[in-house]
Design a protein around this nucleic acid. Structure first.
Lengths: 341, 341
DNA sequence: TAATGGCATGAAAACGTTTTCAAGAGGTAA
DNA sequence: TTACCTCTTGAAAACGTTTTCATGCCATTA
């Protein structure tokens, strides 16, 4: 790798001058600048980002961390794409870490990121009082929380209105005449699970209905829990007539169980999922789902992070996106809804 | 951040000794070792990976690059998971870059990775003679190519037998009696597209059938080309009776078009896709597809990379995984296949 | 006792940048 | 002429490690 010294020698100047040409063009004599730029080009010089990071700690190393719970979940893939697009525009790179809902793994990755001297961090904390993340916030590292907030500390947050999304989904089922509506939740300690459960309950209250706890199941936000818990629900003496699933992996698991058992959707059971996918329309049947704008959320989070890196003192903001119910044919009114799409 | 100096002062030794305790335990007096370890713990010291990288170039910075064409493609998500699991076991971290089939973006990311002084690289080159990657290989950086090889240079490769996978898929359709079998290919310059086209053609030859070029369409390996090119195929005067799609995003696009038009699968058109997904069974209808073991491939690629980092001189290897046809109900024999699942 | 060798440790250089400080050149005003 | 700016540049320190080399001490051997 060619380095500053090589360029300096080639151009007949000192390394300080080369550095100035790179970082502060205009602060140097025009003729010298020419010579140096020529040398940089002909040697195909690229500065070592490692040395840059070591020397000038904080704020201009152009690398950030992105720490997410589950890369297998298409929602987070959308978030990644949004973050990545914004970063590409600014010449940043991300160290991407998938901690698979495992707090130990999250901790390890956060340690690594810290010792990589990142400029900032976008993270979906493993739960609401994630001490490791809280400490990082307090240490002054620019941080944006995405999808999930953090209690007890002032931090920027980008998320979706999970309560309202769940409320709309369950209300939709209630309006279709359903009363035995089951809910398969993700991990109960995750803030989004709590909010979605809250929306579910609020919809029942709103319509003056009582909640039957036996229709609420708690899983781990993965495919397998959808598979298993939907089976448990179908095995109840009086099984539910409708099912609301807490995220897209649970939805796919439930769908698989329902199909394997030959249960008809929506005739025998209606299904609404949290999280839409662009191929939800190709599922059997086309899935009614609550859409989270993952790409936009990721993009917005990255923008907020850049702002905070530039101006660490700016007041924190909380950005809440709407969750929109996409009505397709998996819960009654089948033919009518299909035409809309 | 606490640093080596702080630990040294607390333990009453020099920084060299602390470094030795960290990297070469046993090379130091037992009592001193105790003192130093105590100081490290009480100060919660973690070495700066940036300084480590700067100091000792090559081989022990514990960070690698992972450069893939499309994170939206579930196959690559599986690859990422496989790589990530292997790396986690070894205490490595990855800088993940998604170049979205864009050669400029790939080049930028490779530049960034190089100037991050990574220990090694796992990459799916944008095409077979990707000069940037070739140069990196020649420069001696440990590199594993995944999913796609590189012509004209000796490099480790992990991929799937695309030719055989496509051959099996198309043979399956031929055996079911289909003759007008269309193929929607991904970007033609990508090695995998070429191999899959080769398998398609070989299946025709094998059965003594002629190929009708008008049934072969070239797209860009994304959802949109599946959407559009399947429409073109359905609009032909004599539309195909079967469709073989070149990757999973194309499959989903085609599926969407077919559904929107109300064309029945498999009665009016049979469908086989390259790339399986764990939720293929929940599609409408359950999809017959060629399965690539993405997770295993990623894991294996990471292992090969660790080997090469340790022993840069070892001979290169080419690991070829089998592509297995998963028969479901999207191409005839519908009810029989469903029972198997 | 003197010389030799091994062991534990510390001082200092190096990695490739950025940035501060000083200094030389050239011009202008008193 | 002297003093004082301004403009441009270079020397050197600093970032936090790893590693080489030197040093001092103690034990062993002649």
């Amino acid at each position: 790798m060619t380095k500053l010294t090589d360029v300096a020698r080639a151009a007949g100047v000192s390394i300080a001058t080369v550095s100035r040409v790179l970082n502060n063009p205009g602060s140097v004599n025009a003729a010298t600048q020419q010579k140096v730029e020529q040398a940089i080009r002909s040697l195909n010089y690229r500065p070592s980002r490692v040395a840059q990071r070591l020397r000038s700690k904080g704020g201009n190393s152009k690398i950030i961390g992105l720490v997410l719970p589950d890369i297998q979940n298409p929602f987070y893939v959308d978030v990644i794409r949004g973050v990545e697009e914004a970063m590409y525009e600014q010449g940043y790179a991300a160290i991407m870490c998938n901690f698979a809902q495992n707090e130990d793994k999250e901790r390890l990755y956060l340690d690594i990121l810290q010792s990589e001297s990142i400029d900032g961090l976008i993270v979906a904390p493993v739960h609401g009082r994630d001490q490791k993340v809280v400490n990082l916030v307090l240490s002054g590292l620019p941080i944006i929380c995405i999808d999930r907030g953090l209690t007890g500390v002032d931090v920027d947050v980008v998320l979706v209105d999970n309560h309202q999304g769940a409320f709309d989904a369950v209300s939709h089922l209630i309006k279709l005449g359903h009363r035995r509506i089951a809910f398969i939740s993700g991990l109960p300690q995750i803030p989004t699970s709590k909010a979605r459960l809250g929306g579910y309950e609020a919809a029942f209250r709103e319509h003056g209905l009582a909640i039957d706890e036996s229709y609420i199941k708690y899983g781990d936000s993965k495919h397998e829990s959808g598979l298993r818990l939907s089976a448990e629900l179908l095995d109840l003496p009086t099984p539910p007539t409708a099912l609301f699933t807490g995220n897209n992996l649970i939805t796919l698991g439930a769908l698989e169980t329902i199909h394997r058992r030959g249960v008809k959707i929506p005739e025998e059971i209606a299904l609404v999922g949290f999280d839409d996918m662009y191929w939800s329309i190709s599922l059997n049947p086309p899935l009614t789902a609550v859409r989270q704008p993952g790409f936009e959320m990721g993009h917005r989070a990255a923008e907020l992070l850049f702002q905070r890196i530039k101006d660490p003192g700016r007041p924190t903001v909380k950005v809440v996106f709407d969750a929109a119910l996409q009505v397709r044919s998996s819960c009654g009114a089948a033919t009518a809804a299909l035409k809309d799409n």
